[in-house]
Design a protein around this nucleic acid. Structure first.
Length: 534
RNA sequence: GUCUCCAUCGUCUAGUGGUUAGGACACCGGGUUUUCAUCCCGACAACAGGGGUUCGACUCCCCUUGGAGAUGCCA
Protein backbone atom coordinates (compact mmCIF):
# COMPACT_ATOMS: atom_id res chain seq x y z
CA UNK A 1 0.00 0.00 0.00
CA UNK A 2 1.20 3.50 -0.77
CA UNK A 3 2.23 6.03 1.78
CA UNK A 4 -0.64 7.84 3.48
CA UNK A 5 0.14 10.61 5.92
CA UNK A 6 -1.95 13.26 7.58
CA UNK A 7 -1.75 16.64 9.21
CA UNK A 8 -4.15 16.66 12.13
CA UNK A 9 -4.30 20.08 13.78
CA UNK A 10 -6.89 21.29 16.22
CA UNK A 11 -8.15 24.56 14.84
CA UNK A 12 -8.06 26.59 18.00
CA UNK A 13 -7.08 30.00 16.73
CA UNK A 14 -3.91 31.02 14.99
CA UNK A 15 -1.57 28.47 13.46
CA UNK A 16 1.95 28.74 14.79
CA UNK A 17 5.12 27.79 12.97
CA UNK A 18 5.79 24.64 14.98
CA UNK A 19 2.47 23.32 13.89
CA UNK A 20 2.74 24.24 10.26
CA UNK A 21 6.26 22.85 10.11
CA UNK A 22 4.78 19.46 10.96
CA UNK A 23 2.39 19.94 8.06
CA UNK A 24 5.25 20.87 5.76
CA UNK A 25 7.26 17.79 6.65
CA UNK A 26 4.25 15.55 6.17
CA UNK A 27 3.57 17.17 2.83
CA UNK A 28 7.20 16.87 1.75
CA UNK A 29 7.32 13.24 2.81
CA UNK A 30 4.12 12.40 0.96
CA UNK A 31 5.19 14.17 -2.20
CA UNK A 32 8.65 12.65 -2.07
CA UNK A 33 7.19 9.19 -1.73
CA UNK A 34 4.45 9.77 -4.25
CA UNK A 35 1.96 9.14 -1.47
CA UNK A 36 -1.18 10.76 -0.15
CA UNK A 37 -1.31 13.78 2.13
CA UNK A 38 -4.49 14.09 4.15
CA UNK A 39 -5.89 16.80 6.33
CA UNK A 40 -7.85 15.91 9.41
CA UNK A 41 -9.36 18.65 11.46
CA UNK A 42 -9.47 17.70 15.12
CA UNK A 43 -12.31 20.00 16.03
CA UNK A 44 -13.63 18.18 19.06
CA UNK A 45 -12.94 21.15 21.29
CA UNK A 46 -16.24 22.77 20.41
CA UNK A 47 -15.59 25.96 22.31
CA UNK A 48 -12.39 26.88 20.57
CA UNK A 49 -12.90 25.22 17.20
CA UNK A 50 -14.76 28.01 15.52
CA UNK A 51 -15.58 28.21 11.80
CA UNK A 52 -13.25 31.21 11.66
CA UNK A 53 -10.40 29.20 13.12
CA UNK A 54 -10.96 26.46 10.55
CA UNK A 55 -11.11 28.99 7.73
CA UNK A 56 -7.88 30.52 8.95
CA UNK A 57 -6.18 27.14 9.00
CA UNK A 58 -7.30 26.36 5.46
CA UNK A 59 -6.17 29.76 4.31
CA UNK A 60 -2.72 29.35 5.83
CA UNK A 61 -2.29 25.97 4.18
CA UNK A 62 -3.31 27.32 0.83
CA UNK A 63 -1.00 30.30 1.21
CA UNK A 64 1.92 27.95 1.84
CA UNK A 65 0.93 25.70 -1.02
CA UNK A 66 0.17 22.73 1.21
CA UNK A 67 -2.41 21.10 -0.99
CA UNK A 68 -4.03 18.04 0.52
CA UNK A 69 -5.65 15.05 -1.10
CA UNK A 70 -9.10 13.50 -0.68
CA UNK A 71 -11.23 16.55 -0.12
CA UNK A 72 -13.09 17.52 1.91
CA UNK A 73 -10.89 17.00 4.96
CA UNK A 74 -12.06 14.66 7.69
CA UNK A 75 -13.66 16.51 10.56
CA UNK A 76 -13.14 14.68 13.78
CA UNK A 77 -16.51 15.66 15.18
CA UNK A 78 -18.07 13.52 12.47
CA UNK A 79 -16.33 10.46 13.87
CA UNK A 80 -17.47 10.53 17.47
CA UNK A 81 -19.82 7.59 17.06
CA UNK A 82 -16.95 5.56 15.70
CA UNK A 83 -14.74 6.55 18.62
CA UNK A 84 -17.35 5.52 21.15
CA UNK A 85 -17.96 2.29 19.31
CA UNK A 86 -14.26 1.50 19.59
CA UNK A 87 -14.41 2.21 23.32
CA UNK A 88 -17.33 -0.20 23.66
CA UNK A 89 -15.41 -2.80 21.77
CA UNK A 90 -12.45 -2.45 24.11
CA UNK A 91 -14.81 -2.70 27.04
CA UNK A 92 -16.34 -5.86 25.59
CA UNK A 93 -12.87 -7.34 25.05
CA UNK A 94 -12.02 -6.55 28.68
CA UNK A 95 -9.25 -4.31 27.36
CA UNK A 96 -10.92 -1.35 29.04
CA UNK A 97 -12.85 -0.69 32.20
CA UNK A 98 -14.99 1.99 33.75
CA UNK A 99 -13.58 4.05 36.53
CA UNK A 100 -14.68 7.07 38.49
CA UNK A 101 -11.36 8.11 39.95
CA UNK A 102 -11.27 11.79 38.92
CA UNK A 103 -14.89 12.14 40.06
CA UNK A 104 -17.82 13.46 38.11
CA UNK A 105 -18.95 10.12 36.74
CA UNK A 106 -17.53 7.08 35.06
CA UNK A 107 -14.72 7.41 32.58
CA UNK A 108 -13.60 4.60 30.31
CA UNK A 109 -10.02 3.57 30.81
CA UNK A 110 -7.92 1.57 28.39
CA UNK A 111 -5.98 -1.15 30.15
CA UNK A 112 -2.41 -1.69 29.00
CA UNK A 113 -2.82 -5.33 27.92
CA UNK A 114 -1.60 -7.72 30.57
CA UNK A 115 -0.98 -10.32 27.91
CA UNK A 116 1.25 -7.85 26.16
CA UNK A 117 3.16 -10.39 24.15
CA UNK A 118 0.61 -9.99 21.38
CA UNK A 119 1.72 -6.41 20.88
CA UNK A 120 4.51 -5.77 18.42
CA UNK A 121 7.75 -4.70 20.07
CA UNK A 122 7.07 -6.01 23.56
CA UNK A 123 10.00 -7.86 25.09
CA UNK A 124 10.85 -9.35 28.47
CA UNK A 125 13.91 -7.84 30.06
CA UNK A 126 14.31 -9.71 33.33
CA UNK A 127 13.52 -9.54 37.00
CA UNK A 128 13.78 -6.19 38.76
CA UNK A 129 13.05 -4.89 42.22
CA UNK A 130 11.73 -1.49 43.18
CA UNK A 131 11.48 -0.18 46.75
CA UNK A 132 8.11 1.01 48.00
CA UNK A 133 7.18 3.17 50.95
CA UNK A 134 5.88 1.00 53.82
CA UNK A 135 3.33 3.57 55.00
CA UNK A 136 1.29 3.24 51.86
CA UNK A 137 -0.26 -0.15 51.23
CA UNK A 138 0.35 -1.82 47.89
CA UNK A 139 -2.95 -2.37 46.14
CA UNK A 140 -3.12 -4.85 43.30
CA UNK A 141 -6.24 -4.81 41.15
CA UNK A 142 -7.32 -4.92 37.54
CA UNK A 143 -6.72 -1.16 37.49
CA UNK A 144 -3.04 -1.63 38.15
CA UNK A 145 -0.60 -1.72 40.98
CA UNK A 146 -0.82 1.19 43.34
CA UNK A 147 2.03 2.09 45.64
CA UNK A 148 4.23 4.96 46.77
CA UNK A 149 7.88 5.10 45.83
CA UNK A 150 10.64 6.43 48.02
CA UNK A 151 12.32 9.75 47.30
CA UNK A 152 15.97 10.56 47.93
CA UNK A 153 14.95 12.03 51.28
CA UNK A 154 13.07 8.91 52.23
CA UNK A 155 9.64 10.44 51.86
CA UNK A 156 6.81 9.15 49.72
CA UNK A 157 7.17 9.65 45.99
CA UNK A 158 4.62 9.19 43.23
CA UNK A 159 4.42 5.58 42.17
CA UNK A 160 2.12 3.02 40.65
CA UNK A 161 1.72 1.52 37.21
CA UNK A 162 -0.47 -0.59 35.05
CA UNK A 163 -0.91 -4.23 35.96
CA UNK A 164 0.91 -5.27 32.80
CA UNK A 165 3.99 -3.52 34.14
CA UNK A 166 4.30 -6.00 36.99
CA UNK A 167 4.28 -9.45 35.47
CA UNK A 168 5.06 -12.22 38.00
CA UNK A 169 4.73 -9.65 40.77
CA UNK A 170 5.88 -10.49 44.28
CA UNK A 171 5.40 -8.05 47.13
CA UNK A 172 8.13 -8.43 49.73
CA UNK A 173 8.59 -7.07 53.22
CA UNK A 174 11.79 -5.60 54.65
CA UNK A 175 13.14 -9.04 55.48
CA UNK A 176 12.50 -10.29 51.98
CA UNK A 177 9.53 -12.40 52.95
CA UNK A 178 6.93 -12.69 50.21
CA UNK A 179 3.65 -11.07 51.28
CA UNK A 180 1.82 -11.47 48.01
CA UNK A 181 2.30 -13.32 44.77
CA UNK A 182 0.49 -12.47 41.55
CA UNK A 183 1.12 -15.79 39.82
CA UNK A 184 -2.11 -17.77 39.59
CA UNK A 185 -4.31 -14.82 40.59
CA UNK A 186 -4.32 -13.09 37.20
CA UNK A 187 -7.72 -14.38 36.16
CA UNK A 188 -9.29 -13.63 39.50
CA UNK A 189 -8.06 -10.05 39.19
CA UNK A 190 -8.72 -9.46 35.49
CA UNK A 191 -11.97 -11.44 35.14
CA UNK A 192 -13.55 -11.23 38.55
CA UNK A 193 -12.19 -7.95 39.79
CA UNK A 194 -10.39 -9.25 42.84
CA UNK A 195 -8.46 -6.62 44.78
CA UNK A 196 -5.49 -7.35 47.04
CA UNK A 197 -4.18 -4.91 49.58
CA UNK A 198 -0.75 -5.53 51.08
CA UNK A 199 0.33 -3.58 54.17
CA UNK A 200 3.89 -2.73 55.18
CA UNK A 201 5.55 -3.82 52.01
CA UNK A 202 9.19 -2.89 51.37
CA UNK A 203 9.70 -3.77 47.76
CA UNK A 204 8.20 -5.08 44.58
CA UNK A 205 9.85 -7.79 42.55
CA UNK A 206 8.55 -8.45 39.06
CA UNK A 207 9.43 -9.34 35.51
CA UNK A 208 10.08 -6.18 33.57
CA UNK A 209 8.75 -5.94 30.05
CA UNK A 210 9.48 -3.17 27.60
CA UNK A 211 7.88 -1.96 24.43
CA UNK A 212 10.08 -0.80 21.57
CA UNK A 213 9.25 0.79 18.27
CA UNK A 214 11.49 2.07 15.56
CA UNK A 215 11.12 5.79 15.11
CA UNK A 216 11.80 6.97 11.57
CA UNK A 217 13.75 9.92 12.84
CA UNK A 218 14.87 9.05 16.34
CA UNK A 219 15.73 5.39 15.95
CA UNK A 220 14.70 2.66 18.39
CA UNK A 221 12.63 3.91 21.28
CA UNK A 222 12.00 1.81 24.35
CA UNK A 223 9.86 2.20 27.42
CA UNK A 224 9.36 -0.16 30.34
CA UNK A 225 5.75 -1.15 30.90
CA UNK A 226 6.15 -0.47 34.61
CA UNK A 227 6.54 3.21 33.79
CA UNK A 228 3.16 3.25 32.10
CA UNK A 229 -0.34 3.66 33.43
CA UNK A 230 -3.69 2.83 31.98
CA UNK A 231 -5.13 5.49 29.71
CA UNK A 232 -8.40 7.35 29.97
CA UNK A 233 -10.03 7.11 26.54
CA UNK A 234 -13.51 8.43 27.25
CA UNK A 235 -14.10 11.25 29.72
CA UNK A 236 -16.67 10.97 32.43
CA UNK A 237 -18.82 13.35 30.39
CA UNK A 238 -18.88 10.77 27.62
CA UNK A 239 -16.57 12.52 25.17
CA UNK A 240 -13.66 10.65 23.58
CA UNK A 241 -10.16 11.63 24.61
CA UNK A 242 -7.46 12.54 22.09
CA UNK A 243 -5.69 9.19 22.36
CA UNK A 244 -8.75 7.22 21.31
CA UNK A 245 -10.01 9.64 18.70
CA UNK A 246 -6.62 10.04 17.14
CA UNK A 247 -5.94 6.33 16.85
CA UNK A 248 -9.42 5.47 15.60
CA UNK A 249 -9.24 8.20 12.96
CA UNK A 250 -5.83 7.02 11.86
CA UNK A 251 -7.27 3.56 11.41
CA UNK A 252 -10.23 4.97 9.52
CA UNK A 253 -8.03 6.99 7.21
CA UNK A 254 -5.62 4.08 6.77
CA UNK A 255 -2.65 6.17 7.76
CA UNK A 256 0.66 4.42 7.15
CA UNK A 257 3.11 6.95 8.59
CA UNK A 258 2.53 9.31 11.48
CA UNK A 259 4.87 12.28 11.42
CA UNK A 260 4.28 14.66 14.31
CA UNK A 261 5.94 16.68 17.02
CA UNK A 262 8.36 15.36 19.55
CA UNK A 263 5.90 15.95 22.35
CA UNK A 264 4.02 12.85 21.24
CA UNK A 265 6.85 10.38 21.71
CA UNK A 266 5.53 9.04 24.98
CA UNK A 267 2.03 8.75 23.61
CA UNK A 268 3.30 6.56 20.81
CA UNK A 269 3.80 3.56 23.05
CA UNK A 270 0.19 3.56 24.20
CA UNK A 271 -1.09 4.40 20.75
CA UNK A 272 0.68 1.36 19.34
CA UNK A 273 -1.05 -0.74 21.98
CA UNK A 274 -4.40 0.81 21.13
CA UNK A 275 -3.95 0.05 17.45
CA UNK A 276 -3.15 -3.49 18.39
CA UNK A 277 -6.08 -3.93 20.74
CA UNK A 278 -8.38 -2.56 18.06
CA UNK A 279 -7.13 -5.18 15.67
CA UNK A 280 -5.15 -2.81 13.48
CA UNK A 281 -1.51 -2.81 12.50
CA UNK A 282 0.26 0.18 14.00
CA UNK A 283 1.63 2.66 11.47
CA UNK A 284 5.25 3.77 11.29
CA UNK A 285 6.12 6.78 13.40
CA UNK A 286 8.54 9.65 13.02
CA UNK A 287 8.87 12.39 15.59
CA UNK A 288 9.99 15.86 14.68
CA UNK A 289 12.03 18.01 17.04
CA UNK A 290 10.24 21.03 18.36
CA UNK A 291 10.73 24.55 17.18
CA UNK A 292 11.41 26.60 20.27
CA UNK A 293 11.28 30.30 21.04
CA UNK A 294 14.22 32.44 22.13
CA UNK A 295 13.76 31.20 25.69
CA UNK A 296 14.23 27.63 24.52
CA UNK A 297 10.64 26.70 25.22
CA UNK A 298 8.27 25.26 22.65
CA UNK A 299 6.08 27.84 20.99
CA UNK A 300 2.80 28.01 22.73
CA UNK A 301 -0.32 29.64 21.46
CA UNK A 302 0.69 32.62 23.53
CA UNK A 303 3.88 33.31 21.59
CA UNK A 304 2.34 36.02 19.50
CA UNK A 305 5.22 36.49 17.12
CA UNK A 306 5.30 32.94 15.89
CA UNK A 307 2.04 32.78 13.99
CA UNK A 308 2.14 32.04 10.30
CA UNK A 309 -0.28 34.91 9.76
CA UNK A 310 2.17 37.35 11.30
CA UNK A 311 4.81 36.46 8.76
CA UNK A 312 2.31 36.93 5.99
CA UNK A 313 1.35 40.31 7.42
CA UNK A 314 4.95 41.45 7.50
CA UNK A 315 5.45 40.73 3.86
CA UNK A 316 7.22 37.42 3.89
CA UNK A 317 6.73 35.32 0.79
CA UNK A 318 5.22 31.89 1.36
CA UNK A 319 8.05 30.24 -0.57
CA UNK A 320 10.59 31.88 1.73
CA UNK A 321 8.82 30.88 4.93
CA UNK A 322 8.30 27.38 3.58
CA UNK A 323 11.98 27.12 2.67
CA UNK A 324 13.15 28.52 6.00
CA UNK A 325 10.93 26.15 7.94
CA UNK A 326 12.29 23.12 6.10
CA UNK A 327 15.76 24.14 7.24
CA UNK A 328 14.75 23.92 10.88
CA UNK A 329 15.61 20.43 11.99
CA UNK A 330 16.47 19.24 8.52
CA UNK A 331 19.05 19.86 5.86
CA UNK A 332 19.77 18.29 2.49
CA UNK A 333 23.24 17.24 3.61
CA UNK A 334 25.12 19.61 1.39
CA UNK A 335 25.46 23.37 1.55
CA UNK A 336 22.25 24.17 -0.24
CA UNK A 337 19.89 26.44 1.66
CA UNK A 338 17.77 28.28 -0.82
CA UNK A 339 15.89 25.46 -2.46
CA UNK A 340 12.88 25.37 -4.70
CA UNK A 341 9.89 23.35 -3.71
CA UNK A 342 10.76 20.76 -6.33
CA UNK A 343 14.31 20.44 -5.00
CA UNK A 344 12.96 20.07 -1.48
CA UNK A 345 10.54 17.35 -2.51
CA UNK A 346 13.36 15.47 -4.18
CA UNK A 347 15.82 15.86 -1.33
CA UNK A 348 13.52 15.32 1.63
CA UNK A 349 13.95 12.18 3.69
CA UNK A 350 13.00 11.54 7.29
CA UNK A 351 16.34 10.03 8.24
CA UNK A 352 17.97 13.40 7.74
CA UNK A 353 15.69 15.05 10.28
CA UNK A 354 17.61 16.14 13.38
CA UNK A 355 16.89 15.00 16.91
CA UNK A 356 17.41 18.29 18.70
CA UNK A 357 15.03 21.20 18.90
CA UNK A 358 15.70 24.31 16.83
CA UNK A 359 15.19 28.00 17.30
CA UNK A 360 13.72 30.09 14.55
CA UNK A 361 16.13 32.78 13.32
CA UNK A 362 14.02 35.60 11.98
CA UNK A 363 17.01 37.41 10.54
CA UNK A 364 17.93 34.41 8.47
CA UNK A 365 14.38 34.14 7.27
CA UNK A 366 14.44 37.83 6.39
CA UNK A 367 17.61 37.42 4.41
CA UNK A 368 16.16 34.45 2.56
CA UNK A 369 12.99 36.38 1.93
CA UNK A 370 15.08 39.16 0.40
CA UNK A 371 16.60 36.66 -1.98
CA UNK A 372 13.18 35.39 -3.00
CA UNK A 373 11.90 38.92 -3.50
CA UNK A 374 14.95 39.84 -5.58
CA UNK A 375 14.22 36.90 -7.86
CA UNK A 376 10.58 37.75 -8.34
CA UNK A 377 9.77 38.62 -11.96
CA UNK A 378 9.49 42.41 -12.23
CA UNK A 379 5.78 42.39 -12.95
CA UNK A 380 5.02 40.07 -10.05
CA UNK A 381 7.00 42.29 -7.74
CA UNK A 382 5.17 45.31 -9.03
CA UNK A 383 1.84 43.68 -8.49
CA UNK A 384 2.62 42.81 -4.90
CA UNK A 385 4.28 46.12 -4.18
CA UNK A 386 1.14 47.88 -5.34
CA UNK A 387 -0.99 45.91 -2.90
CA UNK A 388 1.29 46.84 -0.06
CA UNK A 389 1.47 50.46 -1.11
CA UNK A 390 -2.29 50.64 -1.18
CA UNK A 391 -2.29 50.14 2.58
CA UNK A 392 -1.07 53.71 2.93
CA UNK A 393 -3.01 56.84 2.17
CA UNK A 394 -0.13 58.27 0.14
CA UNK A 395 0.29 55.04 -1.80
CA UNK A 396 -3.25 54.58 -3.06
CA UNK A 397 -3.07 56.67 -6.16
CA UNK A 398 0.52 56.88 -7.30
CA UNK A 399 1.86 57.87 -10.70
CA UNK A 400 2.10 54.69 -12.72
CA UNK A 401 5.35 55.41 -14.48
CA UNK A 402 7.09 56.69 -11.36
CA UNK A 403 5.87 53.62 -9.46
CA UNK A 404 7.39 51.35 -12.08
CA UNK A 405 10.72 53.12 -11.89
CA UNK A 406 10.78 53.01 -8.12
CA UNK A 407 10.04 49.29 -8.20
CA UNK A 408 12.90 48.70 -10.61
CA UNK A 409 15.26 50.69 -8.43
CA UNK A 410 14.20 49.20 -5.12
CA UNK A 411 13.27 45.57 -5.73
CA UNK A 412 16.69 44.16 -4.92
CA UNK A 413 16.74 46.06 -1.65
CA UNK A 414 13.38 44.99 -0.27
CA UNK A 415 13.65 42.24 2.29
CA UNK A 416 10.09 42.29 3.49
CA UNK A 417 7.15 43.98 1.87
CA UNK A 418 6.46 46.02 4.99
CA UNK A 419 9.72 47.80 4.21
CA UNK A 420 7.88 49.47 1.34
CA UNK A 421 6.46 51.86 3.86
CA UNK A 422 9.81 53.63 3.55
CA UNK A 423 9.15 54.44 -0.09
CA UNK A 424 6.98 57.30 1.01
CA UNK A 425 9.51 59.98 0.03
CA UNK A 426 9.21 59.03 -3.62
CA UNK A 427 5.53 59.80 -3.71
CA UNK A 428 4.70 62.67 -1.38
CA UNK A 429 5.52 66.35 -1.64
CA UNK A 430 7.22 66.60 1.71
CA UNK A 431 8.85 63.52 3.19
CA UNK A 432 9.02 62.75 6.88
CA UNK A 433 12.35 64.04 8.07
CA UNK A 434 14.32 61.95 10.49
CA UNK A 435 15.66 64.72 12.69
CA UNK A 436 18.59 62.74 13.97
CA UNK A 437 19.75 61.91 10.48
CA UNK A 438 19.35 65.49 9.32
CA UNK A 439 21.15 66.85 12.34
CA UNK A 440 23.98 64.46 11.68
CA UNK A 441 24.45 65.20 7.99
CA UNK A 442 23.08 68.66 7.32
CA UNK A 443 25.54 70.72 9.27
CA UNK A 444 28.79 72.66 8.80
CA UNK A 445 29.44 75.66 6.58
CA UNK A 446 30.92 73.69 3.73
CA UNK A 447 28.01 71.28 3.55
CA UNK A 448 25.39 74.00 3.84
CA UNK A 449 27.13 76.05 1.19
CA UNK A 450 27.36 72.97 -0.97
CA UNK A 451 23.65 72.31 -0.66
CA UNK A 452 22.83 75.92 -1.50
CA UNK A 453 25.06 75.73 -4.51
CA UNK A 454 23.43 72.46 -5.50
CA UNK A 455 20.05 74.15 -5.39
CA UNK A 456 21.22 76.64 -8.00
CA UNK A 457 22.97 74.08 -10.16
CA UNK A 458 20.04 71.72 -10.18
CA UNK A 459 17.77 74.56 -11.21
CA UNK A 460 20.07 75.44 -14.09
CA UNK A 461 20.62 71.88 -15.33
CA UNK A 462 19.41 71.39 -18.92
CA UNK A 463 18.32 67.87 -17.99
CA UNK A 464 17.78 66.44 -14.54
CA UNK A 465 18.87 62.80 -14.38
CA UNK A 466 21.23 60.56 -12.43
CA UNK A 467 24.22 61.44 -14.58
CA UNK A 468 23.76 65.21 -14.51
CA UNK A 469 23.00 65.16 -10.80
CA UNK A 470 26.18 63.24 -10.19
CA UNK A 471 28.20 65.71 -12.23
CA UNK A 472 26.70 68.63 -10.39
CA UNK A 473 27.39 67.10 -7.00
CA UNK A 474 30.97 66.34 -7.92
CA UNK A 475 31.57 69.83 -9.22
CA UNK A 476 30.10 71.44 -6.12
CA UNK A 477 32.17 69.24 -3.87
CA UNK A 478 35.28 70.66 -5.48
CA UNK A 479 34.07 74.21 -5.18
CA UNK A 480 33.31 74.09 -1.49
CA UNK A 481 36.43 72.03 -0.83
CA UNK A 482 34.71 68.89 0.32
CA UNK A 483 36.19 65.48 -0.37
CA UNK A 484 34.55 63.52 -3.11
CA UNK A 485 31.25 62.02 -2.02
CA UNK A 486 30.95 64.07 1.14
CA UNK A 487 27.86 65.82 -0.13
CA UNK A 488 25.99 62.62 -0.90
CA UNK A 489 24.58 61.84 2.52
CA UNK A 490 23.68 65.45 3.26
CA UNK A 491 21.84 65.58 -0.04
CA UNK A 492 20.10 62.32 0.78
CA UNK A 493 19.02 63.59 4.17
CA UNK A 494 17.81 66.85 2.66
CA UNK A 495 15.70 65.33 -0.09
CA UNK A 496 14.56 62.01 1.38
CA UNK A 497 14.68 62.68 5.11
CA UNK A 498 16.51 59.41 5.74
CA UNK A 499 20.04 58.13 5.80
CA UNK A 500 19.46 55.01 3.78
CA UNK A 501 18.11 54.13 0.39
CA UNK A 502 19.20 53.36 -3.12
CA UNK A 503 21.91 55.31 -4.95
CA UNK A 504 21.25 58.99 -4.31
CA UNK A 505 21.68 60.12 -7.93
CA UNK A 506 19.09 57.67 -9.19
CA UNK A 507 16.90 58.49 -6.26
CA UNK A 508 17.11 62.20 -7.01
CA UNK A 509 16.19 61.57 -10.62
CA UNK A 510 13.06 59.71 -9.61
CA UNK A 511 12.04 62.29 -7.06
CA UNK A 512 12.31 64.83 -9.86
CA UNK A 513 13.75 68.30 -10.10
CA UNK A 514 10.70 70.13 -8.81
CA UNK A 515 10.46 68.20 -5.59
CA UNK A 516 14.20 68.03 -5.07
CA UNK A 517 14.44 71.82 -5.29
CA UNK A 518 11.52 72.34 -2.99
CA UNK A 519 12.89 69.93 -0.40
CA UNK A 520 16.33 71.40 -0.61
CA UNK A 521 14.90 74.84 -0.03
CA UNK A 522 12.75 73.69 2.85
CA UNK A 523 15.55 71.79 4.50
CA UNK A 524 17.91 74.74 4.25
CA UNK A 525 15.43 77.26 5.56
CA UNK A 526 14.47 74.96 8.43
CA UNK A 527 18.13 74.72 9.21
CA UNK A 528 18.59 78.51 9.13
CA UNK A 529 15.57 78.91 11.34
CA UNK A 530 16.95 76.51 13.88
CA UNK A 531 20.34 78.13 13.97
CA UNK A 532 18.81 81.61 14.09
CA UNK A 533 16.64 80.64 17.03
CA UNK A 534 19.52 79.44 19.12
C1' G B 1 10.59 11.38 42.56
C1' U B 2 10.23 8.19 38.06
C1' C B 3 10.28 7.58 32.77
C1' U B 4 11.58 9.22 27.61
C1' C B 5 14.44 12.21 24.53
C1' C B 6 18.25 15.92 23.41
C1' A B 7 23.45 18.57 23.52
C1' U B 8 28.97 21.41 17.12
C1' C B 9 30.27 29.01 16.34
C1' G B 10 25.21 34.04 19.18
C1' U B 11 21.41 31.35 15.67
C1' C B 12 20.36 27.45 11.70
C1' U B 13 23.46 23.57 10.31
C1' A B 14 27.66 19.95 7.64
C1' G B 15 30.24 16.12 9.90
C1' U B 16 28.88 8.65 11.09
C1' G B 17 37.20 7.10 14.10
C1' G B 18 42.32 10.31 11.16
C1' U B 19 39.22 17.43 8.55
C1' U B 20 43.42 23.62 9.07
C1' A B 21 35.87 21.07 12.25
C1' G B 22 32.93 23.28 6.38
C1' G B 23 28.62 26.50 4.96
C1' A B 24 24.62 30.15 5.94
C1' C B 25 22.43 34.25 8.91
C1' A B 26 23.78 38.00 12.39
C1' C B 27 27.91 41.00 14.07
C1' C B 28 32.67 43.58 12.89
C1' G B 29 36.27 45.41 9.08
C1' G B 30 37.20 46.53 3.92
C1' G B 31 35.76 47.21 -1.36
C1' U B 32 32.15 48.68 -5.17
C1' U B 33 36.35 56.19 -8.57
C1' U B 34 35.14 56.91 1.03
C1' U B 35 26.53 57.79 -1.57
C1' C B 36 22.94 53.12 -0.16
C1' A B 37 19.10 48.41 2.25
C1' U B 38 21.77 45.45 -3.03
C1' C B 39 26.58 43.23 -4.57
C1' C B 40 31.92 41.51 -3.61
C1' C B 41 36.01 40.40 -0.16
C1' G B 42 37.85 39.50 4.74
C1' A B 43 37.92 38.76 10.13
C1' C B 44 35.73 36.97 14.64
C1' A B 45 33.24 32.69 16.39
C1' A B 46 31.75 26.01 18.29
C1' C B 47 32.54 20.15 19.39
C1' A B 48 28.94 21.37 27.73
C1' G B 49 32.35 18.73 31.59
C1' G B 50 34.73 14.15 33.26
C1' G B 51 35.99 9.18 32.56
C1' G B 52 36.78 5.13 29.38
C1' U B 53 37.33 1.99 24.31
C1' U B 54 41.14 2.86 20.47
C1' C B 55 47.49 3.80 17.60
C1' G B 56 43.92 7.83 17.12
C1' A B 57 37.70 10.47 19.07
C1' C B 58 33.23 15.93 17.59
C1' U B 59 32.16 10.95 15.98
C1' C B 60 31.50 4.65 20.03
C1' C B 61 30.36 3.45 25.65
C1' C B 62 29.56 5.28 30.83
C1' C B 63 28.86 9.22 34.41
C1' U B 64 27.91 14.42 35.52
C1' U B 65 25.76 18.93 34.18
C1' G B 66 22.22 21.47 31.43
C1' G B 67 17.61 21.56 28.42
C1' A B 68 12.80 19.61 26.71
C1' G B 69 8.70 16.37 27.19
C1' A B 70 5.68 12.78 29.86
C1' U B 71 3.84 11.19 34.51
C1' G B 72 -5.03 8.61 33.89
C1' C B 73 -10.10 12.40 32.09
C1' C B 74 -5.05 18.99 27.29
C1' A B 75 -3.89 17.95 22.36
Amino acid sequence: MGVRVRFAPSPTGQVHIGNIRAAIFNWLFARHEGGTFLLRIEDTDLERSTPQAIAMLLQVMEWLGLDFDEKPPLYQTSQVARHLEAAQRLLAQNDAYKDNKGGGGEAIVYRIPFHAEAIPGVATVGTVEVPVHPDVPVVVSHKGVNYAGISAKGTQAPGGCCLAGCKDLQVLDAEGKCLFELAGKEDAILQDGAVFTVERAAKLRFTRRTITYHDLVKGDMTKPLDSMRDVVIVRSDGSPVFHLANVVDDITQKITHIIRGDDHVENTFRHIMLFSSLGATPPAYGHLPMIVNAAGKPYSKRDGDAFVGDFKDKGYLPEALFNALTLLGWSPGDDREKMSRQELVEAFTLNRVLHASAQMDVQKLTNLNGQYIAELPADRFREQAREWLAKYEWGKDVDESLFGQVCALMQSRVKRFVDIEQWKYFFVDVPDYDEKVCAKHVKGEAVLNGLRLLEQRFAALPAFDAATVEQAVEAVCGEVELAHGKLNQPLRAAITGTGIGAGIYETAELIGRERVLRRLAKCLSDNDLQNGGQ
